[in-house]
Write a protein that binds this DNA or RNA. Structure first.
Lengths: 120, 120
DNA sequence: ACATCATATGCCTATATAGGCATGCATTGC
DNA sequence: GCAATGCATGCCTATATAGGCATATGATGT
């Protein structure tokens, strides 16, 4: 099987750096495709394709403004991502540093190998 | 070109649901591959492969404990992700609701087209 | 040294992505 | 209606992923 579709998830959608850049740019307000493409140094088709992905996962919205199509941010879909990742905050904070705990173990292991069944 | 490597980024690494589950499980402490595989209903080789990706992006660490290899969480790499996504918090909060703002514009645009150069 | 248990790798397949390019489609203005 | 502008799509390629399966590699105990 291949990787999950980029459109399956906000997680997958934002895995692509350029899409992240697009989203970042859109914080400044709505923009037409061409402008995004120019500012990010990508081709118009590429921008359109990335925007399509972002639209399919609901991170972006379009509205036609005459000849143009203005893309706007809809960040609500990022909330679950933020929450999921936030669930690990304690672990990089040092507050609940599981890492330290086992870096200790690591050092002890240098001396005598322990079975460490207590950590399972 | 293909998608960026899963190992290129924490963003890419966590795009895969099973890898997210692994990370979540590891919050409970270190675990050997087999156990992870069993608990998540995946094959041992698959677990090993996912763990390899997680290890390559630094989200996970291994330490040999006799015959076993205990995998432990190293969430520090998730911090940048959290921060990036957090940069959008104002936009799903309603605090700085760009979406509302432009729904307003939408209505106004019905009447008179504005050049919007102020928003660039 | 050997059998055993725990993991890592290799190989094969199906899928689809990002990107380049050309072109279709839509809206506007003349 | 027609030309022009703004975007979306289609087509082609290279790449590599997730997963299944078999097997190599590693460490342990006897």
């Amino acid at each position: 099987m291949a990787r999950a579709a980029t459109t399956s998830d906000a997680f997958n959608a934002i895995a692509e750096p350029q899409r992240r850049e697009i989203l970042a740019l859109l914080r400044g307000g709505e923009r037409p495709v061409t402008e995004l493409a120019r500012d990010l140094g990508m081709s118009q088709p590429q921008a359109s394709k990335h925007l399509r992905v972002l639209r399919e996962v609901g991170l972006v919205r379009v509205r036609g403004a005459g000849k143009q199509r203005l893309y706007g941010l809809d960040a609500r879909g990022l909330r679950p991502v933020h929450e999921w990742v936030g669930g690990f905050e304690a672990f990089w904070n040092g507050t609940f540093d599981r890492l330290d705990a086992y870096v200790q173990d690591l050092k002890q292991d240098k001396a005598g190998e322990s079975t460490d069944d207590d950590d399972r």
